[in-house]
Design a protein around this nucleic acid. Structure first.
Lengths: 234, 234
DNA sequence: GTGGCCCAGTGGTCCGACCACTTGAGCCCA
DNA sequence: TGGGCTCAAGTGGTCGGACCACTGGGCCAC
């Protein structure tokens, strides 16, 4: 039975103060030296605790000012997630499947919730993609931006961030899926079908177009998948 | 333009060693005192760097042994995500929607992939749930265990962990959904329909039973939702 | 051959010192 | 009186040393 480390306990207590709403975004923590007194530990342990909270994205130490409670912790947490998962090379299939679970319903939600500005932005992304594809480029940034914009149009913050992380983690496979004759053109065509459905507010059509688009990617990446018929998201 | 902190640079370099495969899961980092020499910094800065990496889940310091590169980073990373999300109080609806995106396809996958042992385990959970419901309890643990077992039967590690986090974050609302006359009985009935479909290997039936089950929960939590007709996951 | 003790090496914690940065107050000059 | 500059106080960042708690291996005694 392992004893809880001092710094872990201090970090947990500060985290509770944040979770309880007693420390709000923008609030300044007491100085390290004062926290050391309050908790009855050394400044080293307080620093360790702050490093934990900083890495979690809950606080931001500012040199000369103090340590501030962070405004929006989701972004800062998901970055370490991406870093850690990129150190693990064998999760591509799992991540791809998760993408298949999330993106069709996201397209459906986007069809229902997208603003005019969302639709215009998507259109501009596809025009940019078309120009670059015509120049023989794979236009991965536009591919990324289009999927991200759909997720944003669905107006679900947690899923948006999750999809963002997954897309980044799958970057290598996504680049691969766009390489080869006609693949970028197919991607652009798939994107256009999705945008058309969203523009028409056709939720089912958008979900189906997204599902087909992702399946097309899958066939280029994992050519034997359809033979096996064990992919239940289809 | 802010200078990079020493500990951040040290953490980044160690992280690169892990991402490059030069440090593998199970490998031991050099001792803190040696790392301090190698990097030409103080041991304090090395400790700070290790705290960052530890919080990211990339390494695990073991007192008396050394600091080991972690085997499977998913768990350690998803935990900080849960912590950060629990510090943010207004994401219940988003998380619930994400649950609705993930769980029907998970039930579908479970219908195709569940082993005999999975099915037996689900059956035992439901029997336990039935006994407790008959005693007037809400049986939240069995509710949790059943959903978890379905996610596990789908054989996708990333999604399993993600669902685990989401269910924990939604614990309060899930307790609420089981409180009140007949709600635990309805939950049990819903679970039985899902298990029946899984047992028959009926993927569509399992997904539909799960969707209906979650919708029932939704109606008990957010009674006006169906009036609004803006929930696109249905 | 087994168990216990000791030692070396590790991380964990404490302490003090000093450095780099930020902010606010006070003073001086126009 | 207002603006600019300087200095001091307070903050986080880094360093170094000391000591404590834990782990594992080796050696010795029974």
């Amino acid at each position: 039975m392992r004893k809880t480390k001092v710094y872990a306990e201090v970090a947990a207590q500060i985290q509770r103060l944040i979770a309880d709403g007693r420390l709000k975004p923008g609030d300044k923590l007491p100085p390290e030296r004062e926290l050391a007194e309050v908790f009855g530990v050394s400044r080293t342990s307080v620093r360790d605790a702050i490093r934990v909270l900083e890495t979690q994205g809950l606080v931001e130490p500012r040199h000369g000012e103090g340590t501030v409670v962070r405004q929006i912790p989701i972004d800062a947490i998901v970055t370490p997630l991406a870093d850690a998962l990129s150190a693990t090379k064998d999760l591509t299939a799992d991540l791809f499947d998760m993408r298949k679970m999330l993106e069709p319903p996201l397209a459906r939600a986007a069809a229902l919730r997208a603003t005019g500005e969302d639709v215009r932005a998507m259109q501009e992304i596809l025009e940019r993609q078309a120009r670059r594809v015509a120049n023989g480029e794979i236009a991965i940034e536009e591919d990324n931006a289009f999927h991200y914009r759909i997720a944003a149009a669905a107006k679900n913050r947690v899923v948006l961030r999750t999809v963002d992380v997954i897309m980044d983690l799958l970057r290598e496979s996504r680049v691969r899926s766009l390489q080869g004759p006609g693949r970028s053109e197919k991607s652009l065509a798939g994107h256009r079908r999705i945008l058309d459905a969203i523009r028409r507010r056709d939720a089912d059509g958008a979900a189906e177009a997204m599902r087909a688009h992702i399946e097309e990617i899958e066939m280029s990446l994992f050519p034997r998948v359809h033979d096996e018929a064990i992919r239940p998201w289809s």
